[in-house]
Design a protein around this nucleic acid. Structure first.
Length: 314
DNA sequence: CGTTGATCCTGGGCGC
DNA sequence: TGCGCCCAGGATCAAC
């Protein structure tokens, strides 16, 4: 018998990696060298729900034949700049973006459900593949999303439509840019009375932080997720400011592994899940102090923390 | 204006 | 073996 894909399919734990900033950045870095300079031959949408044309007609038709100039990212949004349009992609929760070369063999089939970045080998479109983009070199860029929380937006590349788009979608500070400095961060606490977990999930505060990295950042900063934003002393805000960058950076560092494999069809997953301190570790010992990690619900979101390293009061 | 909670969507896991 | 039920979760929007 040939070695089978099943070996990898039988991973001990299903690995969910919600596409947050590090995952989207990983995807961006993987796609960029493949896409730049290619033309977009066609874009086909098989489920209109995932496409947002911002109420203007005729945009899709004009896309064909345009060259891809840049592949960038803002928060969790991936931005593909064509000559006259922007293609903006948000992966939602289970969105996948994969390159496929029809001349090469596909992974056999979906022998089990695929979400997020869990399974990255080249695959044929299936009933969850909602957008097909045909590229100039014969390859396809496929957007697949089981739960359909993801969106593909098409914008005209004129004036400040991109800035307006991100304003409309309430995107705040962008980590790893000069905009991300302490003063702006502290300003984000103004008139905020909610709990830290909710604050971090708000994209208008810091763009790109999702459920996993919110929990990780709070652990890194030693702050209890249920604490109210105004209760923080300045030093605690400073710790959080740094912690967010730290955990996102770590995520990119270890998530990057998965994408090389994705492009090369090696089919391995990222390893950042092994670097998580609290997310998904309910009942397991804290890696710093041994106390069992606690899971609660805050803002209708699963929230993990170490009750010892993240005391409610100091 | 800030905050909260319902909503969308589907597969997986669980109980019986 | 299978059915019904409930859950996860990003962003949006209505209601306070």
């Amino acid at each position: 018998m040939e070695p089978l894909i099943q070996v990898r399919i039988l991973a001990p734990e299903p690995v969910f990696q919600m596409p947050e900033l590090p995952e989207v950045e990983t995807i961006r870095r993987g796609l960029e060298p493949h896409l730049i300079g290619l033309t977009l031959q066609s874009l086909t949408v098989t489920d209109q729900k995932v496409l947002d044309l911002s109420a203007r007609d005729g945009r899709l038709a004009g896309l064909e034949g345009q060259r891809i100039e840049t592949v960038t990212r803002r928060g969790k949004y991936l931005v593909i700049a064509l000559e006259r349009h922007y293609l903006i992609i948000h992966l939602g929760m289970t969105g996948q973006l994969t390159l496929r070369d029809p001349r090469l063999p596909d992974a056999k089939s979906f022998e089990r459900t695929v979400t997020g970045l869990e399974w990255c080998e080249q695959h044929a479109p299936d009933r969850h593949t909602h957008v097909h983009i045909l590229l100039g070199d014969g390859r396809q860029l496929l957007f697949r999303d089981i739960r359909k929380f993801g969106r593909v937006y098409v914008l005209e590349r004129v004036s400040n439509e991109l800035l307006a788009f991100f304003e409309t979608h309430h995107l705040g500070l962008e980590p790893f840019t000069p905009d991300y400095h302490l003063e702006s961060f502290l300003a984000g606490f103004k008139n905020r009375t909610l709990r830290l977990k909710s604050l971090l999930l708000n994209q208008a505060f810091v763009a790109g932080v999702g459920n996993i990295y919110a929990d990780e950042a709070l652990f890194e900063a030693g702050l209890h997720p249920a604490r109210k934003a105004p209760s923080l002393r300045r030093v605690e805000k400073e710790r959080l400011f740094l912690a967010i960058q730290t955990v996102l950076e770590r995520g990119i560092e270890f998530g990057g592994t998965s994408f090389r494999d994705f492009v090369n069809s090696e089919g391995e997953k990222g390893t950042n899940q092994e670097k998580l301190y609290v997310y998904g570790r309910e009942g397991e010992p804290c890696l710093k102090c041994g106390t069992p990690i606690v899971k609660t619900v805050i803002s209708q979101r699963g929230t993990h923390f170490c009750p010892s390293c993240q005391p409610r009061r100091r």
